[in-house]
Design a protein around this nucleic acid. Structure first.
Lengths: 172, 172
DNA sequence: TTCATATATCTTGACGTCGAGATAAATGGA
DNA sequence: TCCATTTATCTCGACGTCAAGATATATGAA
């Protein structure tokens, strides 16, 4: 199904357009343009997240555990950060972080060491197995990310990145 | 902190740029441009989702329960759909849908009716209270969506919507 | 009519997340 | 030094999600 848009070109109607059409019929006074934008953003992110989780699962990792290991890895040797450091970039609560570390410790990919500089805290360190695991997972993850963006023209990718950067800046 | 980009203009370095810089140092062979785009997308969506959930919570709803009520509402009177119909737009599994309906039924916003056309199935119907609740919640939700997109210039919003539409089309 | 297959929905158990609050150590002013 | 406050981390209970499989009804070919 196609429809002629206000600016004159023809585009396929997608699942979000169908939802907007329903709202225009039922609640015509609502301004649903923002809903379209946000709806596409949410649906797209859901698809992308699933693709990425599929790749990580082949390496025995969830998106959550990957986040921790990757943060430790990119911090550089000796691959040790406090839970508070990990919290600073992870967008989760402290309770969630504790749980994530617990799960990784349970399968031997990280270990908790006493923090010599702060008796209240600990350091989370990559184990040898954890390092090996994250090296392979990151390589595969980046390949997946390249695949997921590959069909988009270079100019579109740059434009999209710039727009997202600007919007994100209003929140961070 | 700012840095000069390859194309010559100066932009603020954001949290995603900081992550990419770490990867360039640790694993310089990786192509991290897609990671930047996907990272901004994920972080932005997380912020937006939280703002939206905050609004819905003031109406006693989660994003999940809102989805069901909104789908019923925009389907038009008599506001009845089967769980299968709800599944078709919701991007969740059938077990999740059963749970969502259970929760809404428990607080009296929907009810399950036998499906006269299919003895295996049921119809999920908005109750009077459910209709009242979703009418108010949708109004507030749209206001939040307008606020979240308001600071973006109109041309940017249209460009972003078009880019997202194109990318999403590869998945649906 | 009969039965194999398909379909609609629900059940179960494991996990990840959050919010609120608990615990323990660090910090800094009196 | 002492103690109030702050900070770092963890605990707990509730909830949403998924994957796999169970149950019950519908469908269609023989």
């Amino acid at each position: 199904m196609t429809f002629r848009r206000a600016c004159g070109h023809v585009a396929d109607m997608d699942s979000v357009d169908a939802i907007l059409a329903q709202w225009r019929r039922e609640r015509p006074e609502l301004d649903v343009a923002p809903m379209g934008l946000l709806g596409r953003l949410v649906r797209l992110t859901t698809h992308l997240r699933r693709e990425i989780e599929h790749t990580l699962a082949r390496h025995g990792l969830t998106a959550s555990s990957f986040d921790i290991l990757a943060t430790l890895r990119r911090s550089g040797a000796p691959y040790r950060l406090s839970p508070g450091d990990l919290l600073a970039t992870a967008m989760v609560t402290s309770g969630t972080m504790t749980n994530r570390i617990d799960q990784l410790e349970k399968i031997g990919l990280v270990e908790r060491l006493p923090n010599p500089e702060d008796g209240r805290g600990v350091l989370v360190a990559l184990t040898a197995i954890g390092l090996e695991r994250i090296e392979a997972a990151v390589t595969a993850h980046v390949e997946t990310q390249i695949r997921l963006t590959a069909e988009m023209p270079e100019t579109d990718r740059e434009a999209l990145d710039a727009l997202l950067r600007g919007w994100l800046a209003r929140f961070e």
